[in-house]
């Protein structure tokens, strides 16, 4: 499975990554090799096989809906790169 430079750039954008010109070529080659290796899965007959998303048959874990302690606002904000008036500050979203 070959992956083109354009595909790498498109997927990088979806993943909110900015890949430099020199890295795109290298990534396309390496990712192409990895996907080619992964393609061996096509040899396996999986007709009618259920997919596994978790190895244990887990069911939803519920708890009673009771009031609980939560992280105080100052602590929640303590690691923020920028904050203002008790909120996370981000660059302009709409023009």
């Amino acid at each position: 499975m070959k992956i083109t430079k354009e595909e790498v750039l498109h997927v990088a954008h979806l993943a909110r990554l900015e890949i430099g010109e020199s890295a795109v070529e290298r990534f396309a080659g390496q990712i192409g090799d990895i996907l080619a290796y992964v393609d061996q899965l096509k040899q396996v007959d999986t007709a009618g096989v259920r997919p596994t998303s978790h190895a244990l048959a887990l069911t939803n874990a519920f708890r009673d809906d009771v009031e609980n302690q939560h992280l105080p606002r100052e602590e929640s904000l303590a690691n923020a790169p920028q904050q203002e008036d008790g909120n996370f500050l981000v660059p302009k979203v709409v023009g």
């Binding site: 997927v11 993943a15 990554l17 900015e18 890949i19 990534f27 990712i31």
Partner: peptide, 20 residues
């Protein structure tokens, strides 16, 4: 920019593979 400068090459590679 944050993610490209903050993550190393292997992490970016796996994020791209996973997203793909």
């Amino acid at each position: 920019r944050t993610r490209s400068q903050g993550f190393g090459a292997e992490v970016q590679r796996r994020i791209i593979i996973g997203t793909y």
